[in-house]
Design a protein around this nucleic acid. Structure first.
Length: 178
DNA sequence: ACGATGATGAAC
DNA sequence: TTCATCATCGTA
């Protein structure tokens, strides 16, 4: 299976979010590798996006979003949950794609919800600030082939009603109909 | 549908 | 020190 290069993520965030659907997230734990087809993503793009952690500038928490594409931004929220994001775009420009859902290729279990996914995979802040790579134990692989054109649904993002009339409504959520 | 949950960041 | 949160689960 072909590993998606870091350059894939150094592109417009919306393109990355859309094209990640169908890709496989691979996670190495000890000597086994688990793979998951990404089925749901959200884009958080730039300084002006009021739903993004970076909309009020760089902080200790969100500084990973300002790094080079391919970094992992894993943050803790609601006192309970870890959420996994992949940083996109050039260094200095805060943007990331939130992984909200994925389906195990091994047992076909579908995890819907960004925190349910990380919990099932055992992803925690230990990954925060790392770079996608085989060495890190977390990487992305391209789909085997594009047999049929995937059906992609877009919608406003989840849980960000506070972001104002524009940013709470933009179609930055992408779901793969399976 | 709604409230409880709960640690951390960021604002006051 | 106080408030809000890129959810989820339990109870209705």
């Amino acid at each position: 299976m072909k590993i998606v290069p870091r350059s894939f993520f150094d592109r417009p965030t919306l393109s990355v979010a859309r094209e990640l659907l169908g890709c496989q997230l691979a996670l190495r734990q000890n000597d086994t590798v688990r793979r998951f087809i990404i089925t749901e993503t959200e884009a958080y793009d730039g300084f002006s996006d009021l739903a993004s952690h970076a909309s009020r500038g760089k902080t200790k928490r969100n500084e990973i979003m300002f790094r080079e594409a391919g970094h992992l931004y894993v943050y803790f929220t609601y006192g309970i949950h870890w959420l996994l994001n992949i940083v996109t775009g050039p260094a200095g420009y805060p943007a990331a794609v939130l992984i909200r859902g994925a389906k195990s290729v091994d047992d076909l279990v579908h995890y819907t919800g960004p925190a349910k996914f990380t919990k099932a995979l055992g992803i925690t802040g230990a990954f925060n600030g790392q770079v996608l790579s085989r060495q890190a134990g977390l990487w992305i692989e391209a789909p085997k082939s594009n047999q049929t054109e995937p059906t992609i649904i877009t919608s406003p993002r989840i849980g960000i009603d506070y972001a104002g009339p524009i940013w709470s409504q933009v179609q930055y959520r992408f779901v793969l109909r399976m």
